[in-house]
Design a protein around this nucleic acid. Structure first.
Lengths: 238, 238
DNA sequence: GAATAGTATTTGTAATACTATTCTGAGCTA
DNA sequence: TAGCTCAGAATAGTATTACAAATACTATTC
């Protein structure tokens, strides 16, 4: 391998990340089974035509996300599915890349159902002054776009709105969802399936409640939004 | 460095994992600020007395969890807090190790509030036959222990019960919470603060509803359990 | 003064050698 | 025969060195 970096998907990626992606695909797609021992390092080096250094960095990356597990003498084993960290946005990106995203979208919607109302309630209580300013600016943009609708700008503003709510909860455990949300949205966009309706009134209700510091109203408004947008999808809870 | 593995916390860890832990501590504790550029690889090698190979593996581990970001010539930068993956159980382990866990416990309880009722509802619908068998066995153990109480065995069974619910949702995004829950429980145990009460009746209600496939009842029963145990803690929503 | 080319510094990749761990199995012991 | 101990082999872990690629910075030129 002569060039260390390769153009791919429009962005430059280091070699070990590309490698990790390839291996992750095989694991996530089930091409290599769970609890299976993958070939030894030297074998994989020859197979992928990379140095052991890079291969190991790729394996370490996957290990860190719970996909692999290495031990001397025994080898590197694919772990059980219950150990994959599905809330890692990079892993999610790989997962989406496989295609067959019906189940992924459905499961994610189910998670949003559980989380977003509570996140909105927390944001109403804990959002900082700066976060409230950002939320205001974003909602203003949504409001403008809803009057002169444009799919692209709307999608971006909508994403930013819900992302800010997660970031404004004041709860560290909600932060990762902001990135996961971004990854899912990007996939929604490229795979179309965006709805035209903006639900601007429902969004306004959430926004107002958060700004007013009314957590109960924020929670309920978010529930309303979800139940309204849910009706336009196949069926969210399976 | 002569010995590759070192006894630590009772378990053997590879060098790069120990290194990652040390660096993670500095980041999570705020000893090194966000967006700060950390010293170059060679400098850190000398500082920690390790090879560049191991140091890089440590950095890659932290990068994978969103704590660091490297670019040629510019160096390795600590990312913003909104990129830490707090739902990674290894990262959580490091975080707990720092101490000052008041906020962590509170935030985690808040997350459980949002998630567990929905998880119970999903489990009622989607648990497989085998998962129902495991849940039965675990609840049976809880029931026995509640009559002849013992803190250790109870805690273990209680953990297993709630863990199984997450695993039985049939939703990939809920799986990581099973591991996060384990990590938190382990911390609860070592730092005491375990309550005596078992809430066996509330647990029984959840169990029965799941076995009966009644998702609404399962959700409500889980809400009841949380509201009851919440009252015994300082204040959960801040 | 601005654009361009060159240079230096830092991370990325490669290749090799050696170490630590642990599975396997042979051989010994009870 | 069953079980234990120890040696060896296989594999991941660590170290060292060398070079490549990327980019911030500097100098040169127009």
């Amino acid at each position: 391998m002569h060039s260390a970096f390769v153009q791919m998907d429009g962005v430059k990626r280091s070699l070990h990340v590309q490698l990790a992606r390839e291996i992750a695909r095989k694991i996530l797609s089930g091409e290599v089974a769970q609890n299976e021992i993958i070939p030894g390092e030297m074998t994989l080096c020859e197979q992928f035509k990379v140095s052991r250094t890079s291969l190991r960095e790729a394996i370490k990356l996957l290990t860190s996300k719970g996909l692999l597990e290495s031990k001397p003498k025994v080898g590197t084993r694919v772990t059980g599915r219950e150990n994959w960290n599905f809330l890692d946005s990079q892993l999610l990106d790989w997962l989406i890349d496989i295609g067959d995203n019906e189940a992924v979208y459905r499961d994610f919607l189910s998670l949003r159902n559980a989380l977003e109302p509570e996140a909105a309630a927390l944001a109403a209580m804990n959002a900082t002054a700066q976060q409230r300013i950002q939320l205001s600016a974003t909602f203003q943009r949504m409001d403008d776009i809803s009057k002169d609708f444009n799919v692209e700008t709307w999608t971006e503003a909508d994403l930013e709105f819900h992302r800010l709510i997660f970031l404004s909860t004041g709860n560290s455990f909600y932060l990762p969802f902001a990135n996961v949300l971004c990854t899912m949205f990007k996939s929604f966009i490229t795979h179309s399936s965006i709805q035209g309706s903006t639900c601007i009134n429902e969004h306004r209700a959430i926004y107002s409640a958060i700004m007013a510091g009314d957590s109960d109203k924020a929670r309920q408004a978010n529930i309303d939004l979800l139940s309204k947008s849910k009706r336009r999808l196949p069926n969210s809870t399976k």
